[in-house]
């Protein structure tokens, strides 16, 4: 059997909240190692797409397949185990835990230690902890986080927290990573650093990325393909240059901005 052409296939997604049609017949796909950007004005339904992919929301119709496996109806924790990781728009770190513990949680589903072996600690649990800690430490280095390693993340600066969240997602060794506004609220220098990290992730680590971002410069620089959304529908899809040139995209942005 040959590998499916698309890593992620999303087809005919529909979801309503009360009377509001949040997503309408939404379809797109992501190829392995691809960097796809999802753009659109506020309220277009970008984060809703992520929530459907993650299993937080359950779409009324449509399908979502990762490597050919249907995700709809699976619990978010199960979906994470299949190789889908995510960062959140407003940061969702475990604030009382330290940097490494946050990253270790990304590795949770890949670890096996259960209650009993954890209670005994010596042997399997300890081996597994040390092995995974080492991997997190490497990641911390990759993300320039080593000097914060032991501090509770709640007390760290915003830009650092954004990187930690990225670290947690990377720690899970995902096939696809969803980044929800990774550079929002960041300084230009921090944005540059994050942009480089995102490229490293895609090119060096070979992880596919879906990027939701309002910073159009970043999107144009990074994305291989862009899907523009408005009111829960796909307006246009194609190369960044193509999509940016479309009249409908421009008017949709200007209309609501």
């Amino acid at each position: 059997m040959s590998e499916p052409a698309a890593l992620l296939e999303v087809g005919d997604l529909n979801i309503r909240f009360g009377g509001v049609q949040a997503l309408r017949d939404l379809s797109f796909d992501v190829k392995p190692r691809e960097l796809l950007a999802l753009i659109g004005p506020n309220g277009a339904g970008k984060t809703t797409v992520f929530n459907c992919l993650n299993g937080i929301y359950r779409p009324q119709t449509g399908f979502i397949r990762l490597n050919g496996e249907d995700l709809i109806g699976l619990r978010p924790s199960k979906i994470a185990g299949l190789g889908l990781a995510r960062t959140f728009q407003n940061l969702a770190l475990f604030s009382q835990l330290d940097v490494v513990e946050n990253m270790m949680l990304g590795r949770h589903h890949g670890m096996r230690t259960g209650l009993l072996s954890a209670a005994i600690w010596f042997g399997r649990a300890r081996r597994e902890e040390l092995k995974n800690l080492r991997r997190c430490h490497e990641l911390a280095e990759f993300l320039d986080l080593t000097r914060y390693a032991g501090r509770p993340v709640g007390e760290l600066p915003y830009g650092v927290q954004k990187r930690i969240e990225l670290g947690r997602a990377l720690a899970s060794e995902p096939k696809l990573i969803l980044l929800d506004e990774p550079v929002a609220g960041m300084s230009p220098a921090e944005t540059d650093q994050m942009a480089r990290l995102i490229l490293d992730i895609q090119e060096d680590l070979g992880i596919a990325v879906i990027l939701v971002e309002h910073d159009m410069h970043l999107v144009m620089d990074l994305a291989e393909r862009v899907v523009a959304m408005s009111f829960g529908e796909v307006l246009a899809a194609g190369t960044p240059e193509d999509v940016a040139a479309r009249e409908s995209v421009i008017s949709s942005y200007l209309g609501s901005a």
Binding site: N54, I56, R75, P76, S77, A80, G81, A85, R86, F88, A92, L93, F94, S95, Q96, L97, E101, M104, L105, G106, H108, H109, M111, T113, G114, L115, A118, A119, I120, W121, A125, E128, E129, R168, S172
Partner: peptide, 26 residues
Amino acid sequence: NLVRSRPGRAMQAIRDRDIAAEVAGV
């Protein structure tokens, strides 16, 4: 032993942010 390893970390993650924990795989 429980709280310093995988199960305890998972519980603390749920305490701090249950939905994010679920999305992270807990």
